[in-house]
Simulated scan of single mutants.
Amino acid sequence: MTQTCGFAAIVGRPNVGKSTLMNRILGQKVSITSRRPQTTRHQVMGIKTEGQAQCIYVDTPGMHIMSRDRNKAINRFMNQAAGRALRDVDCVVFIIDRTRWSDEDQAVLERLENVTAPVILAVNKVDRLQDKGELLPWLESVGARRDFAAIVPISAKHGTNVEALEGEVMSRLPESVHYFPDDQITDRSLRFMAAELVREKITRQLGDELPYQMTVEIEEFREAGNVTHISALILVERQGQKVILIGDRGERIKSIGRDARLDIERVLDGKVMLNLWVKIKRGWSDDSRALKSLGYDLD
């Protein structure tokens, strides 16, 4: 029987549910999520193999319009990472949020103008629509913006119609041998996953208090007997951010560490000893060289 295999880029503006969709498709967490925009900062591949078909989904940072408060090296990196994911893919899943259409949605659509791969429009969070009667006329309206290969209303959070979206993607994969072993689900290392899970817990617990000038670097990742020892360094840019992260008598950093450890243990399927440290590194988010040393590297 002929095998099929190909790449599908998941794109859209920040906070439309790209990572939630990929995790739903894979049946487990590969990309971190939070209610805060721009939680995803890297391309992350999620690999789904079903029988003779293998699709490599590429989760991307939210494409955003550069502005005064979004004009740092890290913002440029995220836009470049998202744009690069459109190269040489076999299919694009463009996600929007219900019947909302913003300037950033329009900017994403314009970036897709030169993409020759079929573009499937996924209208997400339809479960939140107060008036379901709005959906059909909206789908007809938004369909006029581009000749989409398909338009699929979904709820990534609840799984509604996600199987139909997968079918649309899978039907467009070319004949090819599989690029990855059938049991592999991501291209990212366990070390990378550990850092991302720590960052997720920080974002979820301190999203409204801590700006985006925060990142996580794994300094130690080793197995000793039945325990994986992980030391993670949390970098911030100002003393005030460090104080917020640590919290009163260290309670906040303990809470972040506890939540992150439990998720990492699920990923590793084993016991984890997690140590967190906070350090000030001024200006790292607007320093291309510093970003590259911290793993923000398009290559």
Rank of each mutant, 00 (worst) to 15 (best):
G207Y: 03
P137D: 15
C91I: 08
V177Q: 14
D263K: 06
Q106D: 14
I120M: 05
D187E: 13
D147M: 05
P14S: 05
E217G: 03
V272R: 04
V216Y: 13
D127V: 09
L235N: 03
K292E: 01
A144G: 13
T39Y: 03
L109P: 02
A164D: 14
K281I: 13
V198I: 15
V11E: 13
P118V: 00
G295R: 07
D248V: 05
A82Q: 09
T49W: 06
G247K: 13
T2V: 10
G12Y: 06
R238Y: 12
D105W: 12
M63I: 15
I25N: 04
R188I: 08
D97E: 07
W277R: 15
R238S: 11
R128F: 11
R199W: 06
S171G: 06
N75F: 09
D187K: 00
Y57W: 15
M78L: 08
T116E: 11
R199F: 00
A122D: 01
G207P: 00
V58C: 10
S176K: 05
L206E: 07
L136I: 03
G62R: 08
P153N: 07
R111P: 14
P14E: 05
N161I: 12
V115I: 15
L235I: 10
V198M: 11
Q80H: 03
K279A: 14
L206N: 02
V152Y: 12
H42E: 02
L298K: 13
G12C: 03
I154R: 02
R188A: 03
C5F: 13
I244W: 06
V169L: 01
H229M: 09
E134H: 08
T215N: 11
N124T: 02
E219K: 10
R191F: 00
Q239C: 00
F7C: 07
L190H: 06
A122K: 12
R145Q: 15
V236D: 05
N15D: 05
D183N: 14
M214E: 10
A290N: 12
V58G: 06
I246G: 14
V236K: 03
V216S: 11
G27V: 06
Q80N: 10
H178N: 01
M63L: 15
I253C: 14
T160E: 12
K48P: 02
H64M: 02
R238W: 09
R70M: 12
L294W: 11
N79H: 04
E251L: 02
Q43P: 09
S255H: 11
I56C: 10
S102E: 09
N124R: 02
V108R: 01
L21V: 04
I10C: 07
F7E: 01
S67I: 09
L165H: 01
V169C: 11
N275R: 09
L298A: 07
G257V: 12
E104N: 02
H229F: 13
